[in-house]
Simulated scan of single mutants.
Amino acid sequence: MKEVRANARELMKGFCRVCPVCNGKACAGEVPGMGGLGTGSSFMANVEALTDYKLRMRLIHSVTNPDPSTEVLGMPLAIPVLAAPIGGVSFNMGGKVTEEDYITAKLKACVANGIVGCTGDGVPPFIYESGFNAIKAVGGKGIPFIKPWEDAELFAKLDKAAETGCSIFGMDIDAAGLVTLAKMGRPVTPKTPAKLKEIISHVPGKFIVKGIMCVDDAKAAVDAGAAAIVVSNHGGRVLDQTPGTAHVLFDIAEAVGKDITILVDGGIRSGSDVLKMLALGADAVMIGRPFSIATVGGLEEGAGKYIQQLQSELISAMVLTGCATIADITPEVITDVLGQ
């Protein structure tokens, strides 16, 4: 991974510094690019919120070979991780690899290592076209995320997504108001409960609503028929001054966790971070920037090494907290900053 990150640092020069800790401080306000919007506080809050929770170490138990596998939305996962939908290599990551090579490598690495990758959407069209081609290349084992466009473009893209052979679809509703799209004159908008229900009923499969940051929106997604939500502030790239996702996850999971699958992203960097998010109520996590860095730096091999690193870290964290299976990861595994 050191070699992969060093190569990524060279290829992403001017767009991402590949910092030792990816916390949004060095790249604040760099949108386009890999930074957070405005002061970058929402990006930084994601990382800081996770650090507010500490792991409760337990060593007097019989757990020596934990099983980190799980099943989410009917998908078997070697670890409870999905590669988040990030595209736009040319204007966010330096353009030294092509969009097609980038997203195909990421999805192939995910399939080869027993997890699932998601594809992004945006302008110009090669972003979503490359994503759709990548999903086809892995036999439909990917999740296309479509931005909340106005009806004609939204439904046309959902129909094209269905042609990839995928069985799960997503919409990153948190892209409403995205600066980069606004600059390109392409309207993306919030959706009413009725419109969201219409969108969900349109697709021939399960639907994920990404961009949930409050209990009310989570309940609305349940009522609209979504199969899953992603607790997400879009990596801090759409609204400055939001809380970190780890700080809102528990309340959302408490409110709707029995009714819908809960995914979360934001600031997750390691296997220990994955364990924390599961303890706060997530069924699985999505990871964005680190996957992009690993993929740009080493294509399929780089992304594969990152997945293997996450798996190793998660297994170690499970041993050191006494969790034999994913089901054993409960709120008792973590403490807050006061040790409570």
Rank of each mutant, 00 (worst) to 15 (best):
D151T: 06
I79S: 11
M34H: 05
G94K: 02
A137Q: 07
M75V: 15
V97M: 08
L73P: 03
A156E: 15
K136Y: 12
E99Y: 02
P125E: 15
M44V: 08
S42A: 15
I79T: 09
L37W: 10
E99C: 01
L55N: 01
I115Y: 02
T119V: 14
N92F: 14
A78N: 08
L73E: 09
V89W: 07
A45R: 10
G40Q: 03
E100C: 00
V81C: 05
P148T: 03
E129M: 10
A45I: 07
A105G: 07
G122A: 05
F132L: 09
M44N: 03
K136L: 13
P68V: 05
A112C: 03
R58F: 14
K136H: 07
S90D: 14
F43D: 07
E99Q: 10
S130I: 04
F145E: 00
G40W: 12
K54V: 13
G142D: 06
Y53D: 03
I127K: 00
V138I: 11
S62K: 13
L82R: 02
A105L: 12
G122S: 08
P66E: 09
T51R: 15
G88F: 12
V97H: 07
H61R: 04
G94Q: 07
A49H: 02
K136A: 12
G36Q: 09
L77N: 06
L77V: 13
V72P: 11
I86Q: 11
L154M: 13
K136V: 14
T98I: 04
P76D: 15
E129S: 01
P76G: 06
D151G: 06
C110K: 00
M93C: 12
G117I: 02
P32T: 04
F155W: 13
G35Y: 10
G95Q: 06
A84V: 04
L55Q: 01
G38Q: 12
L55C: 06
S90N: 13
I143S: 02
G36V: 05
T39M: 06
K157D: 12
D121M: 00
T39Q: 10
V63R: 01
T119L: 05
G140C: 12
K147G: 14
G88A: 14
V81E: 13
D52S: 12
M34T: 15
